[in-house]
Simulated scan of single mutants.
Amino acid sequence: MTIQIKTELCAMFNIRYPLFLAGMAGGMTTVELVAAVSNAGGLGTLGAAYLEPTAIREAILEIRKLTDKPFAVNLFASRASDNNERIREVQQALNPMRRKLGMASVVGEDVATSNLFEEQIAVLIGEKVPVISTAFGILPEPFMRQAKKAKLLVVTMVTTVREALLAEQAGCDAIVAQGSEAGGHRGTFDITEHRMGANIGTFALVPQIVDQVKIPVIAAGGIMDGRGLVASLVLGAQGVQMGTRFLTAIESGAHDAYKQALLNSTEESTVLTKGFSGRPARGIQNGFIREWDASGVEPLPFPTQNTVTRDIRNAANRQSNPDYMSLWAGQGTRLLTSEQSAEDIVDETIRQALLICDE
């Protein structure tokens, strides 16, 4: 069986290698990291879900100063409203953590999370971002129509065959099949049926989706090197998306304490939690997760839980305290390296894949 590293995906997205950077929100995907991956031949992705529309536009302009290659911007397609019904109970469970960080307790006033999706997507379409990617659902039909009219490519993260079929029917150009090994939030559309997400492993999920859709499939979840790329191609994927692998890159926006926690972790270190955001996400178990679980309190739904824990996460970052950071990570962390550039990571991945294919 002959495996070609350059797939149809490369021609469709005008990239040299079938390797996407995951759109990790929260400042991990700096403009430097995005541009470096694109310049190295992959597709850099800006995780912009938490950014103000003006900040997204500024980041797009900065990326374009650093690269003339295609890149993507990722947003959360979910537009859920806040649910403050148990806000006092949740804040009381969080207050002991605040006190450990030297913060004042919070009584339990209602919170209001900004919903900027329509303004955010308007920036992407107005700036003609080459690729729009979404998590937690499909780009709504009016915006899909605008993106197609502007000749922009649209990618959606999926975690089941059913979601993949919905994405294809909606007009997506490609889909990212995210296995349960993936770090952070995966793109499960609706967690009412799967409380902790649809936890199907990457190499079980990919071939089942490939057999059911006609558009390109990009494998994601636990893929850290050329071996994972080749394995994904053998299973029918046309490329891979890697997130955790780039968190310790020189250009990554991850806090130094976060990077060190990643480098100290193993395949046994991560757990799934809804404690930080109200949506299931994979991260390194730390003080926050242990204390939240011990409280026995059910988290508020996303995005409300994410909003009420933000002050704790921000304080932990200021204090360089990884015990109360959201240390999102996939299950392949033994394969991480320190102080390696994004370009070197891309080059190393492709070289290893080519060597395997030549054997």
Rank of each mutant, 00 (worst) to 15 (best):
D110F: 13
N264P: 02
Q212V: 02
N83D: 09
R88M: 12
N317I: 11
A220T: 03
A35Q: 08
L229G: 04
R313S: 00
A237T: 00
R57Q: 13
D190I: 04
S265C: 11
R318Q: 13
A329H: 01
K148V: 02
R86Y: 14
G330N: 07
I15K: 09
E298V: 06
M157E: 01
D347A: 14
A316W: 10
R195V: 05
G226C: 07
P70L: 00
L116E: 04
I175S: 05
D211E: 11
P70S: 01
W328R: 13
A219Q: 11
G23H: 06
S81K: 15
R86S: 13
A316P: 09
F13S: 05
V158C: 05
L124T: 05
D347M: 10
T309M: 10
R162G: 07
I223L: 14
A135Q: 10
R282K: 06
T30C: 04
R162M: 03
R351N: 12
M325T: 10
I3L: 04
G222D: 01
V90L: 01
T309G: 09
A40H: 05
E141L: 07
S326H: 12
R57P: 12
L247P: 07
F302N: 05
A249M: 03
A11D: 11
L46T: 10
L9Q: 06
L153R: 13
A72W: 06
S326M: 15
